[in-house]
Amino acid sequence: MLIRRERTGDAAAIDSVHRSAFASTDSPTPESGAQPAEIGLVHQLRDGSAWIPTLSLVAEFRDRVVAHVCLTRAGIGPFPVLALGPIGVHTDHQGHGFGSALMHAALGAADALDEPLVGLLGSLDYYPRFGFVPGTRLGVLPDDPEWTSHFQVRPLTAYETEIKGDFRYADAFYAL
């Protein structure tokens, strides 16, 4: 396994990862042209000001991109923070540590860049193993109250306790 930054030319492979990871039996068939929202989200994030190229990472296995994660600029009041997501692992490679490796790499990179905090919406059973806690525990709430139950944050080394308030994702997240 190799974890590296996304490169020019990786977009189609990243789309394939998210198509596989987020497809469901309830989704329209590929022939209908409908795709998981995460594909469009990544494209919109790439085209926006919240995109941080150094924090879009892929996992390669045998020269094939099999997983992807990105961290983008978010905010809590005047404080710049990061949002994690989407993260996806191709279904053929789930359960083999690719997602965990990407999480550790992304959080380590964010910490090395002196980012204070990462927020995400996700499984309360999965993300705590990476140090995520309910946002309410640190006084950080999503700006959409419907997200509160699954909103989590991961304080990093540069975190300071005055970073509290409403968490605002990049605009692309609200267009879903």
Rank of each mutant, 00 (worst) to 15 (best):
M1W: 14
M1Y: 13
M1H: 14
M1I: 11
L2P: 02
R7L: 15
G9C: 07
A12N: 07
I14E: 00
V17Q: 05
V17N: 03
R19F: 12
S24I: 05
E31C: 04
G33D: 05
A34E: 11
L41Q: 02
H43S: 12
Q44L: 13
D47S: 13
D47W: 02
S49L: 10
A50Y: 10
I52F: 08
R62V: 06
R62I: 05
V65K: 02
A67Q: 04
R73E: 04
A74L: 13
A74I: 12
G75N: 14
G75K: 14
V81L: 09
V81I: 06
G88K: 07
V89R: 09
V89T: 15
D92R: 15
H93L: 05
H96L: 11
F98D: 08
A101L: 10
L102I: 04
H104T: 15
G108E: 04
G108N: 03
A110F: 04
D111I: 01
L117W: 06
S123V: 13
R129T: 01
F130K: 11
F132Q: 00
V133C: 01
G135D: 04
G139H: 04
D143P: 03
T157M: 07
A158Y: 05
E160T: 13
I163E: 09
D166R: 13
F167L: 03
R168A: 06
F173P: 08
